[in-house]
Computed example of a mutant assay.
Amino acid sequence: MSSDWPRVRLHVVTGKGGTGKTTVAASLALALASHGKNVLVCEVEGRQGLARMFDVDPLPYAETRVATGLRGPDGQRPGAVHALHIDPESALLEYLAMYYRLGRAGKALDRFGVIEFATTIAPGVRDVLLTGKVFEAVQRNSRNKGAVEYDAVVLDAPPTGRITQFLNVSDELAGLAKVGPIKSQADTMMTLFRSPRTAVHLVTVLEEMPVQETADGIEELRAAGLPVGGVVVNLVRPRDLPDEALAQAAAGRLDKEAVRADLEAVGVATTKTLVDGLAAEARDHAERRALEESQRELVDGLGVPTYELERLAAGVDLGGLYDLAATLRDQGLA
């Protein structure tokens, strides 16, 4: 097995709300760590989704070890997965302390509400602070003494509709700051975000709106010069029924007597209501599968590598997260 993205250090995961991008980001971090890598997975939306994924307490603004990576198929010792919840206020305080040595003075500014003003009134500055912390984690320097060096960073990013604006921080700051340290930092970050060391992966489900938003997102990223990674198709339904049975179910021609006989053969007592209900469920399933197949064709036509994750019947717990990580690794995303 080999990764489709061997040069990438920063994996940005985005997707329409409800597609499971946080699940994919957490699974990707575990998959990357299976190669013996130390991995940091970050979130910037304030939802504490990573804490729920890894079943740990709410994350502070500190890099916290949350898991050991998936063990490699060759018995390779896995790396560690750390997680970080980034909020703009803490990022600004750290920025002031690291670059301007404003330790106590920075906290005084916080008491006066200056930091809230800077991070709320000027959204471009807010995004620079959030992405700036991610940039610092990828390219550690002497200012952050004793910090863990990571082989890969995974960012659970904002939704697809905002991802280009979020990453394109240099252009977003153009109307706010044409010179100065923040503008300089934004320009420096763009050298990473537009390089082959970054890949923006998009998560979708096989429904019309998420697939269309994914296509639009890819177009916008490319127009901004940002590197498009792969598309992860999440929550895929199992393909248990053969095509012939699906066609019969969709047309309402399912052999109900055969269904009844199969149930009774395994000891299930049947009634007309039960068999009719199962036939109706089968028809709904067949129609849903037909819709998914049409959307899968559109995804295949996007011109980027695609990966699929099955819907887990019991939901996603930590064990399920490892299963998804193994799938992503085996398919080459990690």
Rank of each mutant, 00 (worst) to 15 (best):
D4H: 14
A108G: 05
S170Q: 15
S294M: 11
V200I: 12
R7G: 10
L130G: 04
T119D: 09
Q331H: 05
V148Y: 04
E172I: 09
T14M: 08
D87I: 08
M1W: 06
A97S: 11
R197K: 14
H82D: 15
V128H: 02
V205M: 10
V24M: 12
V114N: 01
V169N: 00
K133R: 15
V148M: 05
L93H: 01
G225F: 00
A118H: 04
L32T: 10
L298I: 14
L328H: 12
R77E: 14
E207S: 03
E310I: 00
A313Y: 08
G277H: 13
P158I: 14
V114S: 07
P78R: 05
T120F: 04
L167P: 10
V134A: 03
G75N: 06
G72L: 13
A279F: 11
E149G: 09
E220S: 12
S195I: 12
E244T: 09
G17V: 13
K178H: 06
R65L: 10
R65S: 03
D276L: 08
K183W: 02
F193T: 01
H285R: 15
E43I: 05
L235T: 03
A26G: 14
N141A: 00
L246D: 04
L130Y: 05
T273Q: 10
A25W: 07
L202Y: 01
L241F: 02
E292C: 07
V316T: 05
A31L: 10
Y61Q: 06
D243A: 11
A186E: 09
E264K: 07
V233T: 03
A269H: 06
L176V: 15
L93N: 03
A51I: 02
V205K: 09
A265T: 02
E45M: 07
I182H: 02
E257P: 02
A157C: 11
R253W: 06
N234Q: 04
E149C: 05
R289K: 02
I86N: 01
E292P: 00
A199K: 09
A261E: 14
L84V: 07
V266N: 10
Q248A: 15
K272N: 14
L109C: 14
E94Q: 14
L155V: 06
E297L: 09
T188F: 00
V299T: 05
A147R: 12
Q185S: 13
Q48H: 15
D87W: 00
D243P: 00
G217D: 02
F166Y: 13
L318I: 15
E310V: 02
P73R: 08
A105E: 15
G267N: 09
L30Q: 12
Y95M: 10
E208K: 05
T119P: 06
V125A: 12
L221K: 09
A105G: 14
V179S: 08
K37F: 00
W5S: 03
V304A: 06
G20W: 01
S184H: 09
D300F: 01
E297H: 02
D243V: 08
